[in-house]
Amino acid sequence: MKLLIIEDEQGLRESIEKYFTEAGVLCESCGTLAAAIGKISLYQYDCVLLDIGLPDGEGFALLEYLQANEKSEGVLIISAKNSLDNKIKGLNLGADDYLTKPFHLSELKARIDAIYRRRAFNSSNVLNYDLINIDLLAREVKVNDITIILTRKEYDMLLYFIANKGKVISKNAIAEHLWGEEIDLVDSFDFIYTHIKNIRKKLMEAAHKDYIKAIYGVGYKLL
């Protein structure tokens, strides 16, 4: 996958680039609208990560450029403005998804993966990771060819882990992914633990292999 990151805040841009590069995504990045349009006009990307508030204009201009030039890049908007109007405007201009700052890199990765899957493999709805095989349409999970039954939250969590395979995902990120931002984190942490325990157990029974590793109380990692 080839990703263009358009974000003017250097610290954030670098973190995103590092995270995605380590996950095997080919990344390019820039901090201005002009540079972004320059890159878009020259190269083909699978996905574009677009910050709306750029120093030389609003990111919506890029969406208009993509539409005008019939480009098919998937676009994820990131914005500091959690405004419904912005969201609707962005989605109407052809963006695929909208994420409000601040966000977790794991959430960003999961969203980008989803866009990429929808765009690139629209014929294939199957996700494979090691012995795990997921039919995304049927929401059916097979491990080692054995169908395992997951609850809705466990299923969501598994997908989230696969999108961030090999990365440590913080409990905060998991909680926000599953319950939204309003959730009281302290209460939800025990709960995440229970869910993780169940997933581990179900995967272990089918694959005879421990897929999830706890990292010092800060988070979990899919091995």
Partner: peptide, 8 residues
Amino acid sequence: AVITSKLD
């Protein structure tokens, strides 16, 4: 957002 991403 920068802090969160750096922590991640």
